[in-house]
Design a binder for these strands. Structure first.
Length: 486
DNA sequence: GGTGTCTGCCCC
DNA sequence: ATTCTGC
DNA sequence: GCAGAATGGGCAGACACC
């Protein structure tokens, strides 16, 4: 298949707003693909490549844009072969060699093809369709219910394999990781109870998500994105080897504990992953049988109790609230709330799991803003946030673009341009006059920012037009917050 | 060897 | 990671 | 309700360059 056919479909999809129309366009292209092409076409049109990572990013791609071919001749198999070579290149001189291979590929591509490859390899396809839509397209092309294709994909871990195989034949298998179930956010335990009724509440541990597969003495550990991280977490492996179970797939979180049993900050956990220990809150497979369709309450009964995070089952808001307070006091992130009857909804956020975290807020001053990309083109988007320095001036603590509606984006662009003092590249610096209320999940040590502190997951709540910069929170307040564990 | 830059279906 | 938006 | 888009900070590992 010519790359140009695929690129043409991609632009048509991008130019189409309706989901059903996108699906039809994609399904039509899939029908034209040969058996050895279909997996590649699916990968490229859902924004991924077969190699998943090839050690090439924005900087390398930008240098590869030079000569432009006029006739489209590249096939998708040729593209895949080159990407494979790039992925396999390692060692001294490899960056140069990767660059050469990429430039050579680009020189055989038309302008549209180069643009597509650039977006594909930077992970910014922006055609309004990725894997979720592609699942529907595969279902349409094969004349199967989308639910069956989705289920097979979750078990195969790869949509390409589902496009040609017998969808009924896919089942849970050891050492083939399944996409982890995700959680929605709830503001408090009351919201979670209202959604779920009686629920299991568990400490939410601030570490890294792990999925552990065990068969006898053989143990492998996978990350949230299904990377094999077995070698990085030896304590987890040792701990699982000690479990008196045969075949099992467990879902949980790995964290590092200090001598007194309190959790380390996330940053420290990342530095000391080698000593991270596992806590398991779910089980997906046991001795030959999939447990995905069992209710949560039945699955948890099969968990090794010694490795579970603290948990209670209750319908009582007061009990849940004090459990939340206990979690925070113990230095944990908050709680998870899970419906007792719920199945394991692999890869989905729509299921019966909620996360409840403590949020902090600060009133900070906008120091600058950056021009947005894509649908935010022409608008000032990413805000530079500063706390007031009592000795004069402001100390930058991070940036955010979250929490801004289109309307607010428009408003802030006007406001900020009125306050512009200078530009450097895509950054517009402004007089520090606007105060914004910012919510965030915690503070991290920062090697980059002048105060040595950075906000974690900052987002805009609202502009405080009732406040002046001299009413903004000070860096001392922020330091105090950090000291108390925020 | 020391330092800087880029990359990561990164981890969150 | 969080949030907003179109479907 | 789902899926996609737009973007954050920090860290380790790999390589380039001096």
């Amino acid at each position: 298949m010519l790359l140009s056919s695929l690129v043409s479909t991609s632009s048509q999809v991008a130019a189409t707003s309706g989901r059903l129309a996108k699906i039809t366009l994609l399904a039509d292209l899939l029908k034209q693909a040969g058996p050895d092409e279909i997996a590649l076409a699916i990968a490229y049109l859902s924004g991924t490549i077969r190699q998943s990572k090839i050690g090439v990013g924005w900087a390398t791609l930008n240098k590869a844009k030079s000569y432009v071919a006029t006739t489209p001749r590249l096939t998708i198999q040729e593209v895949d072969a080159t990407l494979e070579k790039i992925a396999m290149t390692a060692g001294k001189g490899s960056a140069t060699e990767k660059q050469r291979l990429l430039s050579d590929l680009f020189s055989r591509a038309t302008a549209e093809e180069q643009d597509f490859l650039f977006r594909l390899l930077t992970g910014e396809l922006r055609q309004g369709a990725l894997e979720g839509i592609m699942v529907e397209a595969v279902a349409k092309a094969r004349d199967l219910p989308a639910s069956e294709v989705r289920r097979a994909t979750m078990l195969a871990g790869n949509l390409g394999a589902v496009a040609s195989g017998d969808v009924a034949s896919f089942k849970v298998e050891l050492f083939r990781p399944i996409k982890p179930m995700l959680a929605k956010t709830a503001t408090d335990v009351d919201e979670a109870l209202a959604e779920l009724g009686p629920a299991s509440f568990e400490y939410k541990l601030d570490g890294i998500r792990i999925q552990v597969h065990k068969r006898g003495a053989e143990v492998r550990v996978y990350s949230r994105t299904l990377n094999d991280i077995t070698g990085e977490v030896p304590q987890v492996v040792a701990s699982v080897k000690g479990l008196k179970v045969g075949e099992v797939i467990l879902d949980g979180e790995a964290i590092v504990l200090s001598a007194d049993g309190r959790p380390l900050r996330f940053q420290e956990t990342m530095k000391g992953l080698g000593s991270a220990v596992p806590f398991f809150f779910d089980i997906l497979y046991s001795d030959g049988a999939s447990l995905l369709d069992q209710p949560y309450s039945a699955r948890t009964k099969l968990l090794p109790e010694a490795h579970r995070p603290p948990h209670i089952v209750t319908a009582d808001a007061n009990a849940a609230r004090s459990f939340f307070d206990a979690a925070i006091a113990a230095g944990q992130e908050g709680l998870m709330a899970k419906g007792l009857e719920s199945k394991y909804d692999a890869g989905r956020r729509g299921g019966a799991w909620f996360k409840i975290k403590k949020a902090n807020t600060l009133d900070l001053v906008v120091l600058a803003a950056e021009w947005g990309h894509g649908r935010r083109h022409g608008r000032l988007s990413n805000l530079h946030l500063g706390a007031r320095d009592p000795n004069g001036g402001f100390v930058m603590l991070g940036k955010t673009f979250k929490g801004l509606s289109d309307e607010l984006l428009e408003w802030q662009t006007q406001q900020l341009l009125e306050k512009e003092v200078k530009r450097e590249g895509h950054i517009v610096y402004v007089r520090p006059e606007l105060v914004v209320e910012i919510a965030f999940n915690g503070l991290q040590d920062s090697p980059h920012y002048p105060g040595g502190l950075a906000l974690r997951f900052a987002r805009v709540i609202r502009y405080r037009d009732d406040k002046k910069p001299e009413d903004a929170d000070t860096i001392e307040t922020v330091r105090k917050l950090h000291g108390t564990g925020a």
